[in-house]
Design a protein around this nucleic acid. Sequence first.
DNA 1: CCTTAACTTCACAAATTTCTGAAAGAAGCG
DNA 2: CGCTTCTTTCAGAAATTTGTGAAGTTAAGG
Lengths: 166, 166
Amino acid sequence: MTEAAEAGRDTEAVSRFVESFAAQLVEAGMQRMAARVFAALLASEEGVMTSAELGEQLQISPAAVSGAVRYLAQTHMVSREREPGSRRERYRVHGDQWYEALTNREAVIKRWEVALREGVASLGPNTKAGRRMAETLAFFEFIDAEVAAMMERWKRHREERFGGSE
Amino acid sequence: MTEAAEAGRDTEAVSRFVESFAAQLVEAGMQRMAARVFAALLASEEGVMTSAELGEQLQISPAAVSGAVRYLAQTHMVSREREPGSRRERYRVHGDQWYEALTNREAVIKRWEVALREGVASLGPNTKAGRRMAETLAFFEFIDAEVAAMMERWKRHREERFGGSE
DNA sequence: CCTTAACTTCACAAATTTCTGAAAGAAGCG
DNA sequence: CGCTTCTTTCAGAAATTTGTGAAGTTAAGG
């Protein structure tokens, strides 16, 4: 993005949004640098930024960018692209990816389910505690199935409202 | 709970479950002591424990119990009861409460929505970035509505499978 | 191949968080 | 009312987490 193209943006306002949205993400449990990088990408005009751009906007070291991006890529909230014919890397938020990442809380839920199954087994399925845990387990299993269906509905809803892809 | 009633439980196995489930909760972002206390309550036969019992099982100070319980009560994952005619307090997991607490991620989502609306305003709704954020906002609004409906379906499902209330 | 630009890894300093012991604060019970 | 038992608050020690600079690694481009 050229400086001319950048000119239309209220840098101050963007930065305020980035920091306030990042703060919300942090409060919800995300690492701080990851949250700030994500918010910056979300607010960038094209949804794409280079490592250098991120470092400059957020005033953080290359190392911090590297760490944040690794986390975001692992959790599928951001994808990395190699600018062809350059060792510069670019990071991108894809609308859909980010929704699906939220869905990936499924992975977390799966591990809870495993732990709960072991718990039911240890406590015995006919104890009160065992039954309580079995019910909790059933809840998570229910949620699992429902979330998948919900994402389907969202995709349809989105098509209607926003038209084609991204 | 008397020692005799306690006798049937494999203390070792229970403790293993408590610690492993708590670890999962921590990984998902919950404070450690809160997670351990919650897991202990979940695994307790009656779903109720006193501060002293918690302190002893988890090997933590009264202060730590106090802090954990405050957090859990604030987030509605546990309720506090005063044992009538005693200054001893008892903490309880209610099946339903705990499900609804998960739903209370709604509160978090609401705050994200506020931040995103400001973002759309700052960036301008006709910029690419503004549109991207508007779509993200729409996603959360959609989720909000869906989660409420999902909890309704769960309650019905639960009735069928487990019968009456807790 | 060698140079150089870019990203990553690592060890450490700084900041933050977490848990504790001790003291203070409630509330039952005589 | 005051004693006693339980819970909460608070200040600080300990542990953990976080972000940096610097060295290391990779790959483009001459």
